[in-house]
C-alpha cells in the first residue's frame, strides 16, 4: 500500500522555485487501480517518479508497505525498484540491440537469476502478452503495439507488487490503444497488482475506478463508482 504525506517536489527554474508537487497526500490500496491525469506540466510524471522511487521529494514521505522510499539509501531503493515495481513507458524504452526475449530478461538481471531461469520466465512473460512466437525479434522489427507488449512483459516478468505506466498508449493508434489497455486491465486483475497509470486520455480516465487529477502540484482524487 502506498501512503504519501505532504509530498513536495521543488525545482529551480532559473532563480525561481517551482513546486511540481505541493504537499500531496495520497493513499493507494494494494491491488488498487489509479489513473493520474491533468494538464501538461502539472506534475503527473513527477508524482509517478516519486511512486517509482526514481526521484526523491523535497519534503514529505512516500511509503510503500510502510517503507519510506524518500529516506531509503540508494542501494535499497534500487532493490525495491528491481523487486517490487514494474515500469511501462510511453516510448517503450526497449534496448534497440536486444531481442524481445533479451529485453524482457533485462528486468531479471538485477535479481541474480540464472540464465536458464531468466530465459524460461522471459518466454512465459512473452507468451502472456501474446508474443510467444517472436522472442528473437528486435524492437525495430516489431510494430509499436508489439513493442509495448514486450515492455509490459518486461514490467511483469519479475512479478512486481506495483505496475506504474506513464502514458502507455500515448504513442499508439486507437485500435492498438484499446488492445494494450485490455491487456493491462487483464494482467492487473490476473496478478492482483497495484496499478497506477498516467494518461492524457479522458476516455481511459473515465473507465478507471479512481482518478487523481493534478493541477499546479495539487492532487484531487475522485472515485468513479460506475467503473
Amino acid at each position: 500500500m502506498y501512503q504519501l504525506k505532504g509530498v513536495t517536489k521543488r525545482y529551480m527554474r532559473g532563480k525561481n522555485p517551482v513546486d511540481a508537487l505541493a504537499g500531496v497526500d495520497l493513499t493507494i490500496e494494494d491491488g488498487g487501480r489509479l489513473v493520474i491525469q491533468g494538464p501538461t506540466g502539472g506534475g503527473k510524471s513527477t508524482l509517478l517518479q516519486m511512486l517509482g522511487g526514481l526521484d526523491r521529494p523535497t519534503a514529505g514521505t512516500v511509503e510503500l508497505d510502510g517503507v519510506d522510499l524518500a529516506r531509503l539509501p540508494e542501494s535499497r531503493l534500487t532493490k525495491v525498484r528491481a523487486e517490487s515495481i514494474g515500469f511501462v513507458f510511453q516510448s517503450f524504452n526497449l534496448i534497440p540491440t536486444l531481442t524481445a526475449q533479451e529485453n524482457v530478461e533485462t528486468a531479471l538481471v538485477p535479481l541474480g537469476l540464472g540464465a536458464r531461469t531468466r530465459r524460461e520466465r522471459a518466454a512465459e512473460a512473452l507468451e502472456s502478452v501474446g508474443l510467444g512466437d517472436r522472442p528473437t525479434h528486435l524492437p525495430s522489427e516489431m510494430s509499436g503495439g508489439q513493442q509495448q507488449r514486450v515492455a509490459i512483459a518486461r514490467a511483469l516478468v519479475k512479478r512486481p507488487k506495483v505496475l506504474l505506466a506513464d502514458e502507455p498508449t500515448g504513442n499508439l493508434d486507437e485500435s492498438m490503444r484499446d488492445e494494450i489497455m485490455d491487456l493491462l486491465d487483464g494482467l492487473w486483475k490476473e496478478h492482483g497488482l497495484t496499478f497506477v497509470m498516467v494518461t492524457h486520455d479522458s476516455s481511459l480516465a473515465r473507465k478507471a475506478p479512481r482518478v487523481a487529477t493534478i493541477r499546479k502540484g495539487k492532487v484531487t482524487v475522485t472515485e468513479n463508482a460506475a467503473a
Binding site: T78, V109, P110, K158
Partner: peptide
Amino acid sequence: VREFGTLKALGWKS
C-alpha cells in the same frame, strides 16, 4: 541516457 536510465529504473545498479 534513456537506455541507461531505463535500466536503472528496472533496478540495475549504477
